[in-house]
C-alpha cells in the first residue's frame, strides 16, 4: 500500500514538474503494476493545471486508454490465470 501511495505521488510530481515524457512513463508503469483507476484523477489534475486551454486533456486520455487496454490485455498475456 505504501509503495502504491509513493508511486502515485511520484506520478503526480513528475506530471507537475515535467518533463512530460517522464510523467507518462511513470504513469504507464503505475498502470501496469497496480492498475489503479486513481491514475486518471492524477492525469486530470495535471491537465487541469496546464491544459485547460487545450483541445484534449492529454494526460487523462493517455492514462484512461492505457488503463482500459491493460485490463483488456492482461487475461490474454498471462498463461496461468485459468
Amino acid at each position: 500500500m505504501m509503495l502504491r501511495i509513493v508511486s502515485i505521488l511520484l506520478v503526480l510530481v513528475t506530471a507537475a514538474t515535467g518533463p512530460w515524457w517522464l510523467a507518462v512513463i511513470c504513469g504507464l508503469l503505475y498502470i501496469v503494476w497496480f492498475r489503479g483507476a486513481e491514475i486518471v484523477l492524477v492525469g486530470l489534475l495535471a491537465d487541469g493545471v496546464y491544459g485547460t486551454g487545450s483541445v484534449l486533456p492529454w494526460y487523462t486520455t493517455i492514462f484512461t486508454l492505457t488503463l482500459l487496454l491493460a485490463e483488456w490485455l492482461r487475461p490474454h498475456v498471462f498463461i496461468y490465470n485459468k
Binding site: L12, A16, A37, E38, V40, L41, G43, L44, L45, A46, D47, G48, V49, G51, T52, G53, P57, T60, T64, L67, L68, E71
Partner: peptide
C-alpha cells in the same frame, strides 16, 4: 471506475475548466 473517472474528468475539463483549474492548482 476508470470509465466513471474519465467521464467525470472530461465533463470537468470541457464544462467547468476554471473550476478544474482552481482545484488542480490548489492540489499542485
Amino acid at each position: 471506475l476508470t470509465i466513471i473517472f474519465a467521464v467525470f474528468g472530461a465533463a470537468l475539463f470541457y464544462l467547468v475548466p476554471r473550476l478544474l483549474f482552481g482545484v488542480a492548482a490548489l492540489v499542485m
